[in-house]
């Protein structure tokens, strides 16, 4: 397989000792096995995420995203920008779309960028890691490095919102995207196709500001995973992961439930199936340990 190279936009939550640092660990392990080279965009900044609008407005949000584009164009010319975080991907894609379509905003954004000595030409291509896996590597390519199939393990594929809407993965529906299930099956696991909360919102940033309302959402997401027969939840989004894992104990307190379901990233499943260790798969970063997966690592 020829080595594939991308300009990598890890995002704030994937940094060392941040809430999704185990996502990054597993992405790095996964990419090594797939012969994919990720080069971090030098000096990248935050995308503004979904609640940045309140104080950030429109142009400042476009400008911070365009700064990453300008840095990628300059230092990693010709490489697609790849994000692993749903919000980073969405913020970047939205910005690119807005700047491509509205020359006035492109002009104003470049006026702002000039204050940092930068310029955005409009050449970048923004992609999610899942797109890279499905479109550039393909399911056959994902399968190739598998040495420890995830046999007998049952996963509910929880895609959430922002990896799915408004852009989503080409060829997939908004209401019932199937790629995550297919990835699970490709790795030898069992996908719970009857899982009916795969695109339900976890509350996003409102898990902070509106905890009761968000935890009601999360309760439905986890409960339905149990109902489907799943042992674990798997997701492509760092905020979905954090919200659905971290708040299970709070929900248990409030609702008297006994939730204790591990929530994994697709990249952790892949790293384990590729023969990676607990550490390489970032399984030591789980609040609710995924013992069934750890067992496979130890085999």
């Amino acid at each position: 397989m020829a080595k594939k190279e991308y300009a990598f936009y890890p995002g704030c939550s994937s940094q060392l000792k941040a809430s999704a640092s185990n996502y990054l660990t597993s992405v790095n392990s996964m990419c090594e096995k797939l012969d994919v080279k990720l080069t971090e965009i030098p000096d990248w900044n935050c995308c503004g995420a979904s609640v940045g609008y309140a104080e950030g407005g429109e142009l400042p949000r476009l400008a911070i995203n365009a700064r990453n584009f300008a840095l990628a164009e300059t230092h990693l010319p010709g490489q697609d920008i790849v994000a692993t975080c749903a919000a980073c991907w969405l913020g970047s894609r939205e910005t690119k779309e807005r700047l491509d379509h509205t020359s006035q905003l492109m002009k104003e954004t470049n006026e702002a960028l000039a204050a940092a000595g930068l310029n955005y030409k409009g050449d970048v291509n923004i992609r999610h890691m899942v797109e890279v896996l499905i479109e550039d590597i393909g399911y056959d390519g994902i399968k190739k490095p598998v040495v420890k199939p995830l046999e007998g393990l049952k996963f509910a594929g929880y895609i959430g919102c922002q990896t799915n809407r408004p852009f989503g993965i080409a060829g997939e529906s908004f209401e019932n995207p199937k790629y995550l299930d297919q990835m699970v099956e490709t790795l030898g696991g069992e996908a719970m196709t009857s899982y009916d909360q795969k695109v339900t919102c976890c509350g996003g940033a409102l898990a902070f500001s509106e905890p009761e309302k968000s935890q009601k959402q999360i309760k439905d997401i986890i409960e339905s995973a149990y109902d489907s027969g799943a042992q674990m939840l798997v997701t492509p989004c760092p905020l979905c992961q954090a919200n659905t894992e971290v708040y299970q104990s709070e929900i248990n307190k409030k609702y008297g439930t006994k939730f204790n379901m591990p929530v994994l990233y697709y990249s952790q499943l892949m790293t384990v199936a590729y023969g990676g260790s607990i550490k390489e798969a970032g399984l030591d970063g789980q609040l609710i340990r995924a013992e069934a997966l750890e067992k496979i690592c130890g085999k």
Partner: peptide, 28 residues
């Protein structure tokens, strides 16, 4: 789980060209 760092209170992660970043946000 090493997903929250108490030492972040002393600053934490940052962009290197903070001056340029701030000038850009102010201009926008």
């Amino acid at each position: 789980a090493k997903r929250l760092n108490p030492m972040e209170i002393f600053g934490g992660h940052a962009v290197k060209d903070l001056k340029g970043f701030h000038a850009m946000v102010a201009k926008a």
